[in-house]
Amino acid sequence: MYLRLLFLKDEINCLKTIDTYFKKTGKKIKEAFLKDEIIEINQHKKIFLSDLKKGTPTLSYWLKDKIRILKRIILPTGISIAFLGPDGSGKTTVINGLVNANLPFRQTNYFHLKPIENKEKNNSYNRSS
């Protein structure tokens, strides 16, 4: 149902994409979306996936994809989120929930920063008193 809604929002580009990647079965897919026969797609899912794997993108698409990957290696994108709060406020619980959730990120890193106690300063303070 969700795919059909997306199809109806941008029918022209979806039709172009279907023509590009589904050489043999594209016509059946188009008809299923246009006639609201999504059950047809589920029934022939293996055939459509096989056609998708056989469909080879153009040279221009392949080059653009390789350039995109190279850019991501040189200039990786990402997001940093910091959780601040007093001890016992639930920061770790929220972080663990996010890390264990099915998020659309390829990678997550967790850094737990704790204050460093200066032992020399504390020792000299204790000696002088």
Rank of each mutant, 00 (worst) to 15 (best):
L49E: 09
Q107I: 06
F7L: 03
L70T: 15
K54S: 07
G97W: 02
D65F: 12
T92S: 15
A82E: 12
I116K: 15
F7T: 01
I67G: 04
P57R: 06
R68M: 13
L8T: 05
N102K: 04
L84S: 06
K23I: 10
F83V: 01
W62R: 14
K9I: 01
T17R: 11
K119G: 05
I95Q: 02
E31F: 12
G88N: 00
C14F: 10
A101K: 12
I38W: 03
L49W: 00
L70E: 15
K64R: 14
S129I: 15
E40N: 05
R4G: 03
K28H: 05
F111N: 10
G85F: 05
N102F: 02
H44G: 05
D19E: 14
F22P: 01
I38V: 07
I95N: 02
I12G: 06
L75K: 12
I74M: 06
L3G: 08
K114F: 08
N123I: 12
T108V: 08
E37K: 11
L113S: 02
L52N: 00
P76E: 06
I81C: 04
D19V: 08
R4S: 04
Y2N: 07
E117V: 14
N102G: 02
C14W: 04
G90E: 03
I73E: 08
K119R: 12
L59E: 14
L113A: 03
E40Y: 07
E11H: 10
N123S: 10
G26N: 02
I38N: 02
N100G: 11
N126W: 14
I79A: 07
L103D: 00
K53V: 04
S80C: 11
K53C: 05
Q43F: 14
L49P: 00
Y61A: 09
F33N: 02
S124R: 13
L98G: 02
S124F: 13
F105H: 10
T17P: 04
L52F: 09
D10F: 11
K45A: 10
H44T: 05
I39N: 09
L5E: 04
C14Q: 05
N126F: 15
R106H: 08
N118P: 02
F22E: 01
I69V: 07
S89L: 05
C14T: 03
